[in-house]
Design a protein around this nucleic acid. Structure first.
Lengths: 272, 272
DNA sequence: CCTACAAGG
DNA sequence: CCTTATAGG
């Protein structure tokens, strides 16, 4: 079973840049998408063969998450019960009851970007907003994971977390110690929602100790060519599922002429 | 002597679309440009070999007129003495004293678009504004033409007039009788500033009685392919100069792969 | 159906 | 250095 997460940075732009070819070659069973940046009525016809659950949110041209699944969802949830964040297109969650595999709950999340809190008022406000999201979202994760467990479901929540968890997860960690996305409080939070008995960072578990693989590179300069990236997209899975991963990585190495997005897809093959 | 006028619809976009190749092939002695849509500091380096007089105006990303001349101007004027319109990047005028030809005054104008006055308040206001421009501009034309005459200068004022003068000047004139750009009052105005002793529409004089040649086609649909265009860009010249025209036309027929702009250049070779 | 700009990343 | 939205054409 192949599960992928991909911040496409605008599904309409991604279509032009080769998303359909990527999907045809990789054909994940489940694909979590972030930054659709597209009204539901204008999503290009690139998810043929999938059941698509899409929350565009209410802010035109921004955010937007989706789940494309080969199996039809048996339940769908949009948002995670937050008054502040549920209408922004940041979270969708579906249950899957496939004929030939374990019961599953999968989720696609797009964590807000913060601001560098030392810069100005607006940046500080953005960072505080990010932490409000994180606190609220942690409660939901805990609850939905437990509920999934009671139903005998494995659970995988994936997306763009906008946090690099450790020094292994960004190329220039020394210069970014005070940068948004690598602040101590953010790293504490992402560590705090993981444990060997609750949720496991699948790629890191499978490729522990190595640098990267990064999933995002700035468009500017030669960040991509120099692999000066960040690993901010990942899949957190329940332990049994996480340990079943047999191939993990990003599609940075796949031979596509054009970069589809500033993020690379994060793809995991689970042996279930 | 070759004189051209070209509404480039954004000089930066025009550069990408082949403007440098066009200029290299046509090499007018004088080029009037409209809709530069570009701050003066960011004009691409496409006018090498020309003296460039550019008024970007104060509205970011809109309007902007220029004159590119092989001869260095002996005088430059920006605007035509209108409080309302002089800072919008709609008029530049220069005097040229070439070694090998007549004394000249040349001008580049971008007449405001109106609105269809039967539609709504905003459209009516735009049309009224256009007429305020026209009334004020007519006074300037009359004065500057006389001044040029006193100095022994021929005068040519050219640009995007946003008025099709007669039924010969737009493909679908029947359906556009109540459209902005072909209103009776607009046609009266453009007729009123012309006469065999003052200013002459050079292309129309040289190719009188024929349909077109059009200089603008909507980007939408197949307007260009069907030649469903308007002749709204033209050169008005003092009679002696106008009668000296030996080749007149637009570059609609030149074999360029891409349309540089929604307007075509209007090029006249004067035998002086 | 293009052009710019603006705001967000 | 990309994306989208928006106003203007």
């Amino acid at each position: 079973m192949r599960i992928a997460t991909f911040n496409v940075n605008g599904i309409r732009a991604a279509e032009r840049r080769g998303f359909p070819g990527w999907l045809a070659e990789r054909t994940p069973d489940v694909l979590a998408v972030q930054e659709m940046r597209c009204p539901s009525g204008e999503v290009p016809d690139v998810f043929a063969g999938y059941h698509l659950v899409h929350d565009a949110g209410m802010i035109a041209g921004r955010n937007g998450v989706a789940l494309a699944t080969r199996t039809a969802p048996s339940a769908v949830r949009i948002g995670f019960g937050s008054k502040e964040f549920d209408r922004e297109g940041r979270y969708v969650e579906v249950d899957l009851d496939p004929a030939d595999g374990p019961l599953l709950r999968v989720a696609s999340v797009y964590v807000p970007k913060g601001g560098t809190p030392f810069e100005d008022e607006a940046s500080l406000a953005k960072m505080q907003r990010k932490f409000r999201f994180l606190r609220s979202f942690a409660r939901h994760l805990s609850a939905t994971r437990r509920e999934a467990a009671r139903e005998g479901r494995e659970f995988v929540v994936m997306g763009d977390w906008n946090i690099a968890p450790t020094e292994l997860d960004l190329r220039n960690w020394r210069t970014n110690r005070r940068s948004e996305g690598f602040l101590p409080e953010e790293r504490e939070w992402i560590a705090g929602i993981q444990s060997p008995r609750t949720l496991v960072d699948v790629v890191r578990h499978h490729r522990h100790g190595e640098d990267g693989p990064y999933s995002w590179w700035s468009w500017r300069g030669k960040a991509f060519d120099n692999d000066a990236g960040w690993r901010i997209d990942y899949q957190l899975a329940t332990p049994r599922l996480a340990r079943s991963a047999i191939v993990t990585g990003t599609d940075r190495d796949l031979s596509y002429d054009t970069r589809i997005s500033d993020h690379a897809p994060v793809v995991v093959d689970y042996d279930v």
